[in-house]
């Protein structure tokens, strides 16, 4: 309903909304930055591991072994996965994208999706998405500089999510605490700084009541009311005096002299 809230309450509402927005933006934007940094950092670490595994396989290739026949490759993948809890899966595929070794053995012999692999001839590692999982690929290059295949490392963001949840909780607590203190403090502060104006409005209202006591804040209005009141009172007295005297003639209809 319009007009029920005082202006100080409205100001407090605006301040509370902006406090919520400010704290929410600060927390939200920091959270998003934090999420990106953590995901990037996790990817950096796993990129090192993928690169190291790739180097190990390349060392075997240097001995003249074909990629499909690298001794202990399957064991290497399984050992690496067991050693690093972040790793969700490891795959070694040949240049035709056929899976040669995989920590999930039922994938062996299958073909990798094209979007998991980098363009032909890429010497740097790359990143890809596999549904909810993230992935890092590293090329396997033989001693002649020819690409033999790739090693793909898949991981989930559960570790990042745990850290994000911890950070989010800390930010939520801080936001709630800040709001719990700032909003009442704002209401009090605004109540104090607006009191003069509220008094002025109250004085104006009071001054317009019949028989109101003099108020300094509404002196101008009271003077105007008093002047008018005096004029009307004097006229009333004069008219009552006239009415008490003998009529000049037959009374005329009211419309004749009405304004």
């Amino acid at each position: 309903m319009r007009g029920e809230l005082s202006f100080a309450t409205r100001l407090t509402g605006v301040l509370a909304t902006m406090l919520l927005l400010g704290c929410g933006l600060a927390a939200g934007l920091n959270y998003l930055k934090f999420e990106r940094m953590l995901l990037e950092q996790q990817a950096r670490v796993l990129e090192i591991l993928a690169g190291e595994l790739g180097s190990t396989v390349e060392n075997s290739l240097a001995l003249g072994v074909r990629l499909a026949g690298v001794p202990g490759a399957q064991a290497l993948l399984e050992r690496s996965r067991a050693a690093e809890p972040l790793i969700a899966g490891l795959t070694i595929a040949d240049a035709d994208h056929v899976v040669l070794f995989d920590t999930d053995r039922q994938n062996m012999g299958g073909t990798l999706p094209r979007d998991h692999l980098a363009p032909q001839g890429q010497a740097e590692s790359w990143r890809f998405r596999d549904g909810p999982r993230y992935g890092i690929g590293a090329p396997i290059i033989n001693g002649f500089g020819q690409p033999e295949g790739a090693i793909l490392l898949r991981y989930e963001r559960s570790a990042v999510d745990e850290r994000l949840a911890a950070a989010l909780l800390a930010m939520m607590q801080a936001t709630l605490l800040a709001l719990a203190i700032a909003i009442p403090a704002g209401a009090l502060g605004l109540h104090l700084v607006t009191r003069h104006t509220r008094r002025w409005f109250a004085a104006m209202q009071e001054a317009m009541q019949p028989g109101a006591a003099p108020a300094a804040l509404a002196a101008g209005l009271q003077v105007a009311i008093a002047d008018t009141d005096t004029v009307l009172t004097e006229a009333e007295a004069q008219l009552e005096q006239i009415a008490a005297q003998m009529p000049e003639s037959v009374p005329q209809p009211m419309e004749a002299i009405a304004p």
Binding site: A235, L239, I242, P251, A256, I257, A258
Partner: peptide
């Protein structure tokens, strides 16, 4: 009310 009093006064000139 003043206008009504003036109309009822019976002294139109003075009330006017």
């Amino acid at each position: 009310r003043l206008c009504w009093m003036a109309a009822q006064s019976g002294a139109a000139q003075r009330a006017g």
